[in-house]
Design a protein around this nucleic acid. Structure first.
Length: 269
DNA sequence: CGGGCTGTTGACTC
DNA sequence: AGAGTCAACAGCCC
């Protein structure tokens, strides 16, 4: 489940490794993940030189002199820096570079590889409405976003057009650190709770960013991230004791997703 | 073997 | 506007 920590880590690695390389060829094994015709995609990016790699939420922005390559790994996937000799079996896209290396991209279930012309980012609806990066959020940002908003806090945190980068894997610990129940109505939050939530968002993601992302995703070199189950406080730990009060952690249904909570630390009040 | 569950996202409905 | 459902279809667990 690639969320901010994994995407920020992949972005760093790609910027480090790929800037300056030129795409001399590319292979599309799953045209369905594209936003344009396969022919258009291939023609647009062949010969493109990579200039920068950034991210917004879960989207990776690869800037080239011929336009943008935007990637979203969906529910998981790998971006691997390999050679033709070491290509992974599972791959949906392969970019060949002028130095003999290549980038093999696979989506675990589904994902997107979109081409956008140099001046066309504002027309790319899937990224144009993304909110600010979760790992760069300030208390003031959060306060103004929450003001007057209805609904519950978990749906708010997962809404990418407000805060970009939090997904259903990290949200459990973010809410736990802020001592908030996922179904807590936004309008009932106190000033202190909003401040605590801002800290929880930053803290909850930063540990994993520092560790290169979660153990269930790999980096460009095929190595797993070092953020492990031991770094997770309550997520996916139903039946185990809460690290703060010892109460049994519960798995509950919240809308169409599951949530993990300590029923004592995160009471609905 | 098969069914149910899991990360994302947008489209669609009420 | 918010909440729910579905569809993209891989892999794991029981």
């Amino acid at each position: 489940m690639p969320e901010s920590p994994e995407i920020v880590s992949r972005t760093r690695e790609m910027k480090q490794e790929l800037v300056g390389k030129t795409i001399i060829g590319l292979e599309v094994l799953q045209p369905k993940c594209l936003n344009v015709a396969e022919k258009t995609f291939v023609e647009a990016l062949t010969g493109a030189q990579l200039q920068n790699v950034t991210n917004r939420g879960k989207w990776i922005f690869i800037e080239t002199d011929k336009g943008w390559l935007l990637l979203n790994l969906g529910m998981g996937g790998e971006i691997l820096l390999v050679t033709r000799a070491t290509l992974p079996e599972k791959r949906r896209l392969v970019f060949d570079f002028d130095d003999g290396t290549c980038l093999a991209i696979n989506f675990w279930w589904f994902g997107y590889a979109h081409y956008v012309p140099i001046d066309g980012l504002s027309n790319h609806t899937m990224t144009a409405k993304l909110g600010s990066n979760a790992n760069e959020l300030t208390v003031e940002d959060l306060r103004s976003m929450l003001k007057g908003r209805r609904g519950n806090i978990k749906a708010f945190l997962l809404n990418q057009s407000l805060i970009a980068g939090i997904g259903n894997a990290y949200v459990h610990d973010v809410l736990f650190m802020a001592r908030l129940h996922p179904s807590r109505p936004i309008h009932t939050l106190t000033d202190g709770e909003v401040e605590g939530l801002a800290e929880a968002i930053n803290g909850g993601l930063q540990t994993s960013i520092d560790k290169g992302g979660a153990f269930y995703e790999v980096n460009l070199y095929g190595q797993k991230g070092s953020f492990t189950m031991e770094d997770i406080l309550i997520g996916y730990k139903d039946g185990k004791p809460c690290p703060v009060c010892g109460t049994m952690i519960e798995k509950i249904r919240t809308g169409s997703t599951s949530s993990f909570i300590c029923p004592s630390c995160q009471s609905l009040g």
